[in-house]
Amino acid sequence: MDRDQTAIEGAKDYARLVAQWAPKPNVPLLISRAFLVGGSICFAGQFVFDYFRQRQPTEVEAIALTLATMISAGVLLTALGVYDHLGELGGMGAAVPITGFANSMAAAAIDFRREGMVLGMAAKMFVIAGPVIVYGIVAGILTGLVATLLRLAAG
């Protein structure tokens, strides 16, 4: 075996060792925490929605006000330095709800504010949220296209 081959074999062997010794995540615990954190956020969202539903003429207005309230709450908790701890605790349970999206924009905005209002905050606000918006729109277009084609096929 030449020297390079020995090195490659050594690296492969090491990769196996690293993988084997990597700390195993406690999946049931992580899932339960994600469920509790995500569930609590959704519970709060439902509570806010019910509140507005009783006071608004249509469901559309109630939904809009619920989204605005939850986004504001996410931004506020980010500014207070609470939301990153929710993320540490709940993982995707904190990231997936709309409050998590609000956090990703607010966190970037707070961070890059220090490089100025234009090239800092405004330009880099979408660093984390950008892909969600781009692929959200792409997925929306594709879904709309498929739905239209299906409707046409059905006559």
């Binding site: 700390p23 939301y83 990153d84 993982g91 998590g100 607010a106 961070d111 984390i128």
Partner: peptide, 11 residues
């Protein structure tokens, strides 16, 4: 990532 982002650290 930005400091206040909801990231779960790996062990």
């Amino acid at each position: 990532y930005p400091i206040e982002l909801n990231i779960q650290r790996k062990p």
